[in-house]
Design a protein around this nucleic acid. Structure first.
Length: 243
DNA sequence: GCGACAG
DNA sequence: ATCTTGTCGC
């Protein structure tokens, strides 16, 4: 699932992580437009143990029409990098990629728990994940990272453009009437319009996409069941061994 | 210089 | 991310 894009390179330090982002940023496909009727859509999320030394990364694949889960995978591992705003992807990517490799179907679209272009260097988790998998990807953040915007109208579907350094980096989108908006941005091989349409199709009932919700449930469950035991054997090694 | 800062 | 008590609403 992860062998059709650019190879993932684990950074040794912050300086290298910044170099990798600057190097990969130009390779993001900003045109898309991406699938308007995907057969399957994947959600990715990570849960952490309170000690902070362990995490569970989950991927769930949903039938885009029925929103039923048709495949899923979860990996228990360790954070691969310290948490640094803007370098967040390096923390979770190795475990997420390991989970993706355990899927039996290759999804048509990735819905990431974090931002895509709405990032200081226009290369958030969704861009990185899209590039490494070669799959269309969308970022859906629950809280902002960059940008200024006006409050969207209270109705589902209402949106305003968040601007950072003069450019529009995504959309502040109301997915349900009267709830806090989410922050949608392009990850890879998707247009912003299509990204918003796909997110609205995935939010028939709750604020967050069903993909994110099912993945969230799965990784929390896996973390609880992992208890105090060892990390998931990850085929060719511990996904966190890179940090 | 100070504060803010995806998860 | 995770920890938290209560509260409002379906």
């Amino acid at each position: 699932m992860t062998d059709r894009g650019v190879p993932y390179r684990p950074p040794a330090d912050v300086a290298e992580a910044l170099r990798i982002q600057e190097e990969l940023r130009p390779r993001v496909d900003l045109v898309g437009p991406g699938p308007t009727a995907p057969a399957t859509v994947a959600g990715l999320d990570v849960a952490y143990a309170e000690s902070g030394d362990r995490l569970a990364a989950a991927v769930t694949v949903l039938d885009a029409a029925t929103l039923a889960v048709v495949d899923e995978a979860v990996v228990v591992s360790r954070p691969a990098f310290d948490y640094v705003p803007g370098l967040f992807a390096f923390r979770e990517l190795p475990a997420l990629l390991a989970a993706l490799d355990r899927l039996t179907v290759r999804p048509d679209l990735l819905i990431c728990d974090g931002h895509g272009l709405a990032h200081p260097r226009r290369f958030g988790l969704a861009c990185h994940l899209g590039l490494v998998t070669g799959l269309p990807a969308v970022g859906v953040g629950k809280t902002p990272l960059v940008g200024v915007w006006d409050e969207p109208a209270p109705q589902r579907g209402a949106w305003t453009p968040p601007r950072d350094g003069g450019e529009v980096v995504g959309r502040v989108l109301r997915t349900r009437d009267g709830v806090k908006p989410v922050f949608v941005s392009v990850g890879h091989r998707m247009s912003l319009d299509n990204a918003v349409d796909r997110v609205l199709a995935l939010t028939p009932r709750y604020r967050l996409p069903e993909t994110t919700r099912t993945a969230d449930h799965l990784c929390r469950r896996a973390l609880a069941e992992a208890g105090g035991r060892a990390a998931t054997p990850a085929g060719d090694g511990d996904p966190a061994a890179s940090a």
